[in-house]
Amino acid sequence: MARKTIAVLLATTATLLATAGTALACPGPPAHPAYASAEFENYHAGAEAVTYDPKLVQVGSDATVYSLPTWDGKTTVILRVHGLLLNHMYGAHAHQKSCGATGDVAGPHYQNKPDPVQPSVDPAYANAQNEIWLDFTTDEHGNARSSTTVNWQFTDRHAGAVVIHAEHTHTDPGHAGTAGARLACITVGF
């Protein structure tokens, strides 16, 4: 029921944004919204959400991600998780590729302006304005919601997944954007 409600809200929001954009005579339509919702499972071909560490992201817990582009050129991304460890801090970021057999398959963080040096740990590129950061702390039920809005949209390049990490994201030079081990991944068609 909750997933259907989110899908209806997403469609309604897109319609409202389109109507508002027409009324304001904006230069052009935003990129398409994205939505993914799945339970974490052990990897198998076709898995939409994969756990790489079932002790920290349990099989059967779930995540929902949706991305809403706006007529003013921004993008809001929302992450909701259910059934993770209680009162626990996690990092989360949009990554370049879809999920796979290991967390590394999702590739590096998606960056609006790519860092020419990879892996990127330069705060000029690895930051919450150039990447999509969705760090969260679960509540006493293991649930959390996180969101971010960036001042850009996906164009000819797209992210492919949201990866959940072992710790909140670091911001210091030489470690910027790092958040520990890749614990789980949900494929999202940004």
Rank of each mutant, 00 (worst) to 15 (best):
H168A: 12
S98M: 08
T13R: 09
I132A: 03
T12Y: 00
L183Q: 09
L56C: 07
I6A: 12
A11N: 07
F190D: 04
N130G: 04
A23F: 06
P27K: 07
I6M: 08
A14F: 05
V162P: 00
Q96P: 00
T169R: 03
P173F: 00
T149L: 08
G189C: 01
T171Q: 06
H168F: 03
D115Y: 01
V50R: 02
S67G: 10
G180W: 00
A106D: 08
S146Y: 07
A176Y: 01
T15V: 13
L84Q: 05
V81I: 14
V8D: 11
K113P: 01
N130F: 01
Y35E: 04
G46F: 10
Q58M: 15
S37L: 00
Y125F: 15
L85Q: 14
H170V: 01
D139F: 10
A176T: 06
H168Y: 01
Y43A: 11
G83D: 09
H82Q: 15
V50Y: 00
V105M: 06
T70S: 15
H175M: 06
C99H: 02
T148A: 12
V59C: 12
T155Q: 12
Y43M: 11
L10G: 04
F154I: 08
A2G: 08
C99Q: 02
A14M: 03
R80A: 15
D104C: 02
D172W: 00
K74A: 12
F136V: 11
T15W: 00
E140G: 10
E140S: 15
G177V: 07
A179N: 04
V117A: 14
A18S: 11
Y90I: 08
T76C: 05
D122W: 03
H141V: 04
Y110M: 09
H88F: 11
F190G: 05
D104W: 06
T178G: 09
I164T: 01
G177R: 02
I186S: 04
R80V: 13
D172Q: 12
A176Q: 05
T19I: 14
G21V: 00
R80L: 11
H141I: 02
L84E: 02
G160P: 03
N127V: 10
P108A: 12
M89Q: 14
G91Q: 06
A94C: 14
G177E: 05
G107P: 03
T148W: 04
E39W: 01
A126V: 09
Q58I: 06
P69D: 11
Y125E: 05
A144D: 10
Q118G: 04
D122T: 03
Y52I: 08
H165D: 05
Q58Y: 10
A101F: 04
